[in-house]
Design a protein around this nucleic acid. Structure first.
Length: 200
DNA sequence: CAGAGGATCGGCT
DNA sequence: GCCGATCCTCTGG
């Protein structure tokens, strides 16, 4: 398992969203323990996308979307959940990739201390808000550089590359027709309606 | 297991 | 004030 650097990943939004499927997200907690999950579902929010938080320009919430790529963008939604994104595109261009679902690989017990003792493996990281709950990710991690931070980073292992499916995105009211959702076909850890993950 | 409906509050108009 | 890149609970099959 090798930690990724900025130079290892595509800077373009949809290219990164596809590239990210199969990579590992590692969260290191204050006590030194770690939790690890494999990315099985992402959504691209490219420049000019009406559904993107960056569409109406820079604000205090979305400023990290306009910063350097390969950084975290974390926001709070629906009064209850945080969502983790990874920024893309050169500085000055607002874009990011939402991490929608992970397959839990390591640190499941510590995830359950935050998500609940009864939660099944399948539901531990299935959904963007659940990921942030299990990994203790909130606005304190907004803007951190994934290349150099010691709390959050990306890694690659030797697992066989998944077949990647493509579909429309989940939970939107704008630009609902754009097919910018990427997922590992056949994974049992995906979010959203089952039908969305069948074809493509 | 799948689908529907309500809760909840920060961000932005 | 309004609305959301969601989650949880409950219901029915």
């Amino acid at each position: 398992m090798r930690r990724l650097r900025r130079s290892d990943v595509p800077i373009a939004t949809d290219a990164f969203a596809r590239f990210a499927i199969g990579l590992l997200i590692v969260r290191r907690f204050d006590d030194g323990s770690t939790a690890i999950g494999r990315i099985v579902e992402t959504e691209a929010y490219a420049p000019e996308d009406p559904a993107s938080h960056a569409f109406r320009g820079r604000t205090s919430r979305n400023q990290s979307m306009f910063g350097i790529n390969f950084a975290a963008y974390v926001y709070f939604i629906y009064g209850s959940a945080y969502c983790l994104n990874i920024t893309t595109e050169p500085i000055g261009i607002g874009a990011a990739v939402l991490i929608r679902a992970l397959e839990p690989l390591d640190g499941l017990a510590s995830m359950r201390t935050r998500r609940g003792p009864q939660v099944t493996d399948r539901d531990l990281l299935r959904g963007p808000g659940r990921i942030c709950r299990a990994f203790e990710i909130d606005r304190r991690l907004d803007g951190v550089d994934l290349e150099s931070d010691d709390r959050l980073w990306l890694a690659r292992d030797s697992a066989t590359t998944a077949v990647v499916g493509i579909s429309t995105r989940i939970g939107l009211t704008k630009a609902v027709e754009i097919r910018h959702r990427f997922f590992a076909r056949g994974s049992s850890f995906l979010s959203g309606p089952r039908a969305l993950s069948q074809d493509s």
